[in-house]
Amino acid sequence: MNSSTKTYSGLVLEYDSGIVPPPYSHVFRLALDWSKGQLDVALDLHYTDRDELSEEEILDEGFTLNDDYSHKGPLNGVWIKPLQQLYDKSRWTNKDIEDGGITVTPIEKGKDNGVKIPANQEEWQLMAQDLIQAIYETVNKEAPLQIHYRLVEGDTSTDCSITVHFSNREVIFEKGGASRTINWEYAIQLMKLVFTPDYHYEMAKEVPGKKRGAYIDCGDGYWHELGKGVVNIDPSFDAVGKIKSGFYDLLLG
């Protein structure tokens, strides 16, 4: 880690979804300040161009008629180090982001040091999403993400779950009444895999399967069979197989 962590005491992240159509298009500003030893955050999120749509069109996409959100308050300081690590390893570019993207502004002694455009856009956008989710959990706007999984082999079925607490960057793995904390990065990569395939909800059931196979509930109460109700979108990337192996390793552990 370079010496820059000694000079800046906060970051401002600003994002514009760009060419994404409404009701998904949005902008946000996320200010992060750890100058006083704790992490204080200020979030302003606004969905754009919704006047082009009818109320029904917005609701049909799973949104509400008022999804804008603002918040100021403390966030668990466990997020400071990952933010500093990402900033210190990032490279910056002059590439235009008119089509959408995120900018980062370091704050030193209460003053900004100029807007920077990270070359590693995806990493910063994921970090911002995680931080917003952490805010939502902290204020009880949303519950922690919980994934349930069942593996049936012969006459034996094994149930487990993963609960991702963004509020404090802690992931709990539970099996057979026993729980343990698992590695954050491992869990986040597994969660990315979980949401990669195509889920056929017309094949989903409200109870997990009992026949040989692997079943998953992504937190909405519907169970899907991996390989049948959950299928790979890209034939060159076996997300379903990677989900199975990821949970299998956890079950063995």
Rank of each mutant, 00 (worst) to 15 (best):
K6W: 03
Y8S: 13
G10S: 10
I19G: 02
P22L: 04
H26P: 07
D33P: 11
S35Y: 13
G37I: 09
D40V: 13
V41G: 03
R50M: 15
R50P: 13
I58G: 11
D60G: 06
D60I: 01
E61L: 07
T64G: 13
H71P: 12
G73V: 01
P74M: 05
G77F: 13
V78I: 09
W79L: 06
T93C: 10
D99Q: 10
G101H: 01
G101P: 03
V115S: 12
I117R: 08
L126M: 10
L131A: 03
L131T: 00
I132C: 04
A134C: 05
E142L: 09
P144E: 01
H148C: 11
V152I: 13
E153N: 10
T163G: 06
H165V: 11
V171M: 07
F173N: 14
E174K: 02
A178I: 07
E185W: 02
E185L: 04
E185A: 02
T196C: 07
D198Q: 07
E202G: 15
M203R: 13
K205T: 14
P208S: 06
K210R: 11
K211Q: 11
Y215N: 06
D217K: 06
C218V: 10
V230P: 02
V231G: 14
N232F: 02
F237V: 08
D249I: 08
